[in-house]
């Protein structure tokens, strides 16, 4: 039975989670299924990549320009762009519906008339967001770990776990931007727009910092820098990365509580 908004939100998102998980698993399977063909043509492909302009190569493949090794292939095809898009898009969708979505639907008026404090409601919604993004992360990790084991690529499940954990934390931080904006404005579209805008801006900053020396020092301002950028696999789990991502999320969560407690709920 649904005793609180945490469980209710999980139930709200069950079908959404299922759809996203199936999509993630299918895409990982498809990409890993073609890896054996890629590895057979490794020499020719790497030669082509080595002839690309250095800036372009660095922007999409990282400083090493590795594409044909298992780690390089997974980094390039899955982790450098697909994983951020999937995790962040899912987190923004869930966070947008969490408070602002309920407010726009009119269900928040009844919910807040019950003896549920606003702080508690925000914390339960955030806990649900964390659980749901973690579930997508688990599906991504499991499918990639199983696929690499089946295809026989020498990438450890622990290494994949580290990369997926960083993406999960990145998605939670961006989702918290959406949650805070939605809590402050009561507008789901405003929350989605601000969350997506912040994500795109940070992604561009991190990419630009890899090809432009002048922008290089500012890469620390981008959360993507802490989630591994273009080479998440093999980066490992650094304490500073986890700390920055977790602290950013917690700061945004505190802001969400403060903003939400100080405003009227719309009719």
């Amino acid at each position: 039975m649904l005793h609180d908004s945490f469980l209710k939100t999980l139930r709200d998102q069950a079908r959404n989670l299922l759809t996203w998980s199936v999509g993630v698993v299918a895409y990982v399977a498809m990409l890993m299924a073609v890896y054996p063909s890629i590895s057979k043509s490794a020499g020719r492909l790497q030669g082509y990549i080595d002839n690309l302009p250095a800036a372009l190569r660095a922007a999409f493949l990282g400083p090493s320009g590795d594409f044909t090794s298992p780690t390089g292939y997974i980094n390039t095809e899955l982790l450098s762009w697909l994983a951020p898009i999937v995790f962040i898009a899912f987190a923004i969708g869930v966070a947008g519906r969490a408070l602002a979505g309920e407010e726009e639907d009119g269900t928040l008026s009844l919910l807040l008339a019950y003896p549920v404090s606003r702080r508690r409601l925000v914390l339960q919604k955030f806990a649900a967001l964390t659980a749901l993004v973690s579930a997508i992360g688990a599906a991504f990790w499991a499918s990639l770990a199983i696929a690499t084991a089946i295809v026989g690529t020498p990438v450890g499940a622990g290494s994949i776990f580290a990369a997926v954990l960083l993406f999960t934390l990145l998605a939670l931080a961006i989702g918290s931007v959406t949650l805070a904006t939605g809590a402050a404005t009561g507008s789901r579209s405003a929350g989605t727009a601000v969350g997506a805008g912040v994500a795109v801006a940070m992604y561009l900053l991190n990419t630009l910092a890899q090809i432009n020396a002048a922008a290089h020092p500012y890469r620390v301002l981008s959360l993507f820098y802490y989630s591994g950028g273009t080479t998440p696999l093999g980066r490992g789990l650094a304490g500073v990365d986890v700390t920055v991502l977790v602290c950013t999320t917690l700061a945004l969560l505190a802001a969400t509580v403060l903003l939400f407690e100080r405003r009227d709920v719309r009719v």
Partner: peptide, 19 residues
Amino acid sequence: AGGDVRALIGYLPDVPAFY
């Protein structure tokens, strides 16, 4: 007031919305 007052209140908005 917190939840202790709302625990004593029943509220029907003009256009109630449900899940």
